[in-house]
């Protein structure tokens, strides 16, 4: 087992009567890309959204087990969910820029967290946009509405917005599912770069994408963790029959 940034331990989650995650345990290493893959409805997005406690917003959610970041439980009374979400950024499946200017989109996070004066925030915006490989495309139109960007640019803008508050972990929930192949390639290039500075967790139902971008890979099915390991091992010599069936396209 690798060094652990995020430790998931015997995690169970219910939405009302629906048992969505069943005894999931694994460790996500720092400064690497970990992919969570699996067929639709297997609970992979739910697992991701548990890490920054976005599921708290859904009524009737019940959790047992634990998730620890740097050894600290995210469900502990001492954990502030606001601070947790600042440390654990998220990029959603569908690009969701705010209907503000490009600049205001990225400045939103630093402003609410009061991360410095006007000049500091401008600098943070530029840094985040550079980090998300978007700066050169938007530097001359920072005051344009974010909706004037293409879908792929919007998704990189949402990534920049997430990086602007200096998270430690970046969660990506099927970030390329609404993008064309060219935009997807650019986003994947960005994801591979991000692991230098962040711990990256990406949910995808696209196994080629998981193979291309990830170092570690978790395979989830019907709420159970079937297999977790180095991506090359999972793809070349899966231990479980179900993983092999998924990878060879028997279902998906």
């Amino acid at each position: 087992m690798p060094e652990s940034k995020i430790t998931v331990e015997k995690l169970n989650l219910w939405f009302g009567e629906n048992h969505v995650l069943k005894d999931v345990s694994f460790s996500i290493p720092p400064n690497a890309v970990t992919a969570i893959m699996g067929p639709s409805g297997c609970g992979k997005s739910t697992l991701l959204r548990t890490v920054n406690r976005m599921n708290d917003l859904i009524l009737g959610t019940r959790v047992t087990g634990d998730i620890r970041i740097d050894g600290q439980s995210i469900f502990a009374d001492t954990t502030d969910v606001i601070d947790l979400r600042k440390r654990v950024g998220m990029v959603f499946q569908k690009p969701n820029p705010f209907p503000k200017s490009i600049l205001e989109n990225v400045a939103f996070g630093p402003r609410i967290h009061r991360m410095g004066n006007h000049a500091d925030i401008q600098q943070r915006v530029e840094q985040a946009l550079r980090h998300a490989n978007l700066w050169d495309e938007v530097k001359d139109r920072l005051h344009d509405n974010a909706f004037s960007l293409s879908g792929g640019q919007q998704q990189r803008l949402c990534t920049a917005r997430c990086l602007s508050v200096e998270p430690e972990i970046v969660l990506l929930d099927e970030p390329a599912s609404a993008l064309d192949p060219h935009s997807t390639a650019r986003l994947e290039e960005l994801i591979r770069q991000l692991k230098q500075d962040y711990t990256v967790v990406i949910v995808t139902h696209n196994m080629q994408q998981a193979a291309r971008v990830s170092d570690w890979c978790a395979f989830l099915m019907l709420g159970e963790l079937v297999e977790f390991g180095r991506t090359e091992n999972i793809f070349t010599k899966p231990k479980d029959r179900r993983t092999e069936d998924f990878l060879t396209g028997k279902f998906g």
Binding site: I82, R85, F92, F108, G109, I112
Partner: peptide, 20 residues
């Protein structure tokens, strides 16, 4: 998604409503 996006950045519920 405007509320969700803001809250995922660590905005409080009121901040998300007030700004987004």
């Amino acid at each position: 998604s405007f509320r969700e996006g803001a809250m995922a950045l660590g905005a409080t519920k009121w901040e998300a409503i007030r700004h987004n």
